[in-house]
């Protein structure tokens, strides 16, 4: 793998994570439990889509084949997506959505913090902008996870169920592969082992305050960020997201 290929793959991972999660969160629009949550969810989705434009825009530039961020978002099929399995998981109830958000935010925040020091200035600049937004995302998702975990019996039960359901998708974030190794060697990406330690510290504190129990299992599902084996959910999302571009090729919108 050349450095350029690894960089392209890495940027797709960053951009596909925000694209797929932004899309999932946007599915809530108008259906949240309370007006403030409608606003906050739309705001989070908006930030993530904005970050997608930057990451995929840069990915297209690095690839050098003339593909724009929109081309990458709208004209790739499932096997070409490089997002984590976690972010493509369905919304479920509000608790599941916020648990997914909190687990991703805690990883995302640590990742972006390190990326602000990347040897590639373009990446450092995007990370610095995204970090401001993601700091707010984690504040909000962690507060909500704490509030609902330590709320009523029902809210506690639902949050524990969400955590148990999503925990097997946490490991993939921290399992390095050839792309991660190449980016680490190039001074761009952080060491995922060190990142995991910081993630654990954060998540343990949140879960303790939320009175939730971290699952014992260390089993990690994989196949999202490599594109080897996504879940069945991603294809359905793409049929919706890409429909207009696919149905009316060549039209400008």
């Amino acid at each position: 793998m050349t450095d350029q290929t690894a960089l392209f793959e890495y940027l797709l991972r960053l951009g596909d994570n925000t694209l797929v999660l932004g899309h999932r969160v946007s599915e809530w629009c108008g259906h949240a439990p309370v007006l403030e949550e409608d606003i906050a969810l739309a705001n989070t989705a908006l930030d993530l889509i904005g970050q997608t434009q930057m990451w995929l825009g840069l990915a297209g530039e690095v690839e050098g084949s003339g593909r724009s961020a929109d081309d990458l978002a709208m004209h790739r099929d499932v096997w070409d997506f490089r997002n984590l399995l976690l972010v493509e998981q369905p919304n479920g109830d509000f608790g599941q959505t916020l648990m997914r958000q909190c687990l991703f935010d805690a990883f995302h925040l640590e990742l972006l913090t390190d990326l602000t020091r990347a040897s590639d200035d373009r990446i450092a600049a995007i990370a610095a902008k995204a970090l401001k937004e993601v700091t707010y995302h984690l504040d909000r998702s962690s507060e909500t996870v704490i509030g609902l975990g330590d709320g009523t019996e029902e809210s506690h039960r639902r949050m524990q169920a969400a955590l148990d359901l999503l925990w097997p998708y946490v490991g993939e974030m921290f399992t390095p592969d050839a792309v991660d190794d190449a980016m680490l060697a190039a001074g761009i990406a952080p060491d995922l082992k060190a990142l995991r330690a910081r993630f654990d510290t954060r998540i343990d504190a949140i879960l303790t305050e939320a009175t939730l129990t971290k699952p014992d299992s260390t089993y990690a599902q994989s196949g999202g960020k490599t594109g080897f084996r996504h879940s069945e959910h991603l294809g359905h999302m793409l049929t919706q997201m890409q429909w207009l571009q696919r149905a009316y090729p060549g039209a400008a919108w």
Binding site: A32, V34, F94, G147, G151, T152, E154, S155
Partner: peptide, 11 residues
């Protein structure tokens, strides 16, 4: 969303 509102109020 009732359980969410109730949960957050209880917290």
């Amino acid at each position: 969303g009732a359980w969410v509102r109730e949960g957050l109020m209880a917290h």
